[in-house]
Write a protein that binds this DNA or RNA. Structure first.
Length: 307
DNA sequence: TATGCGTGGGT
DNA sequence: TACCCAAGCAT
């Protein structure tokens, strides 16, 4: 162990360029941040957690109305935990990746049973919740509880890759070097670190975007490593697009949509109308049952999970 | 570590 | 028009 001792004299604790980075991004955020409900001062940690799970791979514009409806119906984790998981799947509507709804319900149950109904405020306990990974645990700890964590999502990775590393895109998968960089860039002060985390994400979401970055609006333009290097093209493997037409994903989506929109159990014959290929249809239905998204009844019908 | 997992708007 | 891709997680 090598305890790091704070300097007795007011020596700068980090190189000036990093302080400049912080100041520019934080100033930009104060002027340009979106007014999102889960960022409102009165938003509960539960509201933040729900937003983070909904925002996993789903755009803000589509999350907004679903988040409002969710929080209106289930203002606290215990409210959701008291209902069957199928209700969460139904309320999820078309946000996509409906296993997230199931996991959010399971998280609500865990919060009720293991945390007295309150969203835990430390990273390890958040990480233990269903559907909460490294990113979401750090995000909730930072955004809801003001703690100092490296919050590394796809936006942050892109900003770091360009502004600091000088690459057009981050690596395909999160690397140890990226995590180290994120930790190094974290402001020392807890409250500042929390603001920094959300500010870098916002910069990536609004300005330093994947397709057509709006560099003219970027507070880092004149010190962006990627721009200074002449905006070199992405070097590395081309990302594989997500196949869609004819995939199990598409079939699962069709089957679950029918169940969501039905008030009660659905006949197998109705589900059969979703997809002509019977073998694929059955495989997908079995998969949905195995995932807990669909419950088969003794009479041969199917329903959203009741327990 | 690579893969499977929904959905719909933007370019 | 066909991609591209959007605050990841679990396995």
């Amino acid at each position: 162990m090598t305890p790091r001792r704070a300097p007795a004299t007011p020596t700068p604790t980090r190189p000036a360029p990093v302080a400049d980075l912080h100041e520019r991004v934080l100033t930009w955020y104060d002027a340009h941040a979106r007014d999102l409900p889960w960022r409102a001062p009165g938003c509960s940690p539960w509201g933040v957690l729900v937003s983070e799970v909904m925002l996993q791979q789903t755009p803000v514009a589509r999350v907004l109305p679903r988040w409002e409806a969710w929080l209106a119906r289930w203002p606290a984790p215990g409210d959701l935990a008291a209902e069957p998981p199928g209700e969460a799947v139904r309320m999820w509507d078309r946000l996509g990746y409906p296993r997230r709804a199931l996991r959010l319900h399971a998280a609500a149950v865990a919060i009720r049973d293991e945390h007295g109904g309150r969203v835990p405020d430390d990273h390890a306990r958040l990480l233990a919740l269903p559907g909460v990974g490294t990113y979401t645990a750090a995000a909730v700890a930072s955004f809801a509880f003001g703690q100092r964590h490296a919050v590394v999502d796809t936006n942050v990775r892109r900003v770091h890759a360009r502004a600091v590393t000088g690459a057009a895109e981050p690596a395909a998968a999160l690397t140890a070097a990226e995590n180290r960089l994120a930790v190094e860039l974290l402001p020392e002060d807890e409250g500042t670190a929390a603001r920094w985390a959300v500010a870098v994400m916002e910069l990536g979401a609004l300005v330093c975007t994947a397709r057509a970055p709006r560099c003219d609006a970027c507070p880092l333009l004149d010190r962006c490593a990627w721009v200074l290097a002449g905006r070199p093209a992405h070097t590395g493997p081309v990302r594989r697009g997500q196949a869609w037409a004819g995939t199990d994903r598409q079939v699962r989506g069709k089957l679950l949509a029918v169940l969501r929109e039905s008030a009660g159990p659905v006949e197998a014959a109705v589900l059969a109308g979703c997809w002509a290929d019977a073998a694929q249809r059955e495989r997908c239905l079995d998969g949905l049952v195995a995932d807990g998204l669909v419950e088969p009844l003794d009479d041969g019908r199917f329903t959203l999970p009741r327990s």
